[in-house]
Amino acid sequence: MPPRLTRHQRRLFHWIEDYIAEHGMAPLFDEMRDGLEYESKSSVSIHMKALKDKGYLTYIPRKARSTQILRPSRQVPLLGTIAAHSLVTIFPDEEVEMLNLAGLPKFAGLSRHEISQYFALRVRGDSMEGAMIADGDIVVMRWHNDPTEIKNGTIVAARVNETTTLKYLHREGSRIMLVPANDRYQPTTIDAEWEEVEIQGVYVGSVRGLI
């Protein structure tokens, strides 16, 4: 476990992360003081030294904008494995691994709150290879509060009863079709009046060879 931060240290660390995400460079100590309304720059120096000693960041003394984040909090949880070829149970009851995707262009400018809307799954199977999603890839998903707003043809993680799959979503009245991107597999058809269907997330992109 990483060393715990005090409330003031965590506040400064998160402020620095959001500043770098917004501006693409590290803040000056004067900007930290003004942004957090400290009375003096010495308060910033004390907290920065503590963050450096605990391994959360590093910087070169007296060198402007040299701060680098070593232990980012802006991470995406890898929640388990999802089947591309069939319906299987995912989200195992085990320790969640965190992935640092902040360096990717799509995530670089997002705040910690915005990144919290995303999660990741490892793909099992090849039924989505036509969508450039291969067996073993990590797919990044976004939580979606209103499934009725999701357009037909969107790739989703869909939960049917107690099982989940990654497929294209198509609706026709009460009928829901989960369609693969590989001609070797057949669509899964569900009558929403008789079976419960939950859209767990909307596909954002995939990362190959990340872990």
Rank of each mutant, 00 (worst) to 15 (best):
T67E: 09
L87H: 06
R112L: 15
R112D: 11
L36T: 01
E95V: 12
A50P: 04
T67M: 15
H47Q: 13
S86W: 09
V88P: 04
E31G: 00
A50D: 11
S45W: 10
K106M: 11
L57R: 02
R65C: 07
S127W: 09
G24Q: 05
M48W: 03
I46K: 13
G35D: 06
S40R: 15
D53M: 09
M25F: 13
E22A: 14
L51G: 02
L78Y: 00
E37I: 11
E17I: 02
I90V: 10
V88I: 12
G55A: 07
S116K: 10
K41W: 09
D126Q: 02
E22P: 05
M48S: 09
V123R: 01
I82V: 12
A102I: 08
V96H: 00
L79K: 02
L51E: 03
S43G: 11
Q68M: 09
E97K: 14
F107P: 08
D53C: 05
A26M: 03
S66L: 06
L110A: 05
A50Y: 08
M48R: 08
F91G: 01
E95A: 12
E97S: 10
E129V: 05
P72A: 08
S66R: 06
H47E: 12
T67K: 06
L104I: 08
P27S: 07
E114A: 08
K54D: 01
D34N: 13
I60K: 14
A131L: 07
L101G: 04
K63H: 12
P92V: 04
L70M: 12
L104E: 13
D137E: 03
S116G: 11
G103S: 11
D34R: 15
G103T: 07
V96D: 00
T89P: 04
Q117M: 10
P105Q: 09
S45G: 12
I16Q: 03
K52E: 10
G103D: 12
A134T: 08
D18W: 01
V76I: 15
M98A: 12
Y38E: 09
N100C: 10
Q75H: 05
G103L: 06
A131H: 06
P27D: 07
Q75L: 07
M32K: 05
A83S: 15
Y56M: 03
L78E: 00
L57Y: 04
D30K: 15
G103F: 10
M32Q: 10
G125C: 06
E37W: 11
Y38I: 09
E39S: 12
L28Y: 13
A120I: 00
L87K: 10
G109A: 08
Y56W: 07
A21P: 00
P61R: 14
N100M: 05
K41S: 14
I90D: 14
A26Q: 02
M98C: 06
R112Q: 12
A83W: 08
M48N: 04
I90Q: 11
F91D: 10
L51W: 04
G136F: 01
M98F: 14
Q75G: 02
F29A: 12
G136E: 01
T67I: 15
P27Q: 07
Y59S: 11
Y38K: 08
V44Q: 05
R71W: 14
A108P: 01
I115P: 05
E97I: 15
F91Q: 06
I82G: 00
R124L: 09
A50K: 13
H113A: 14
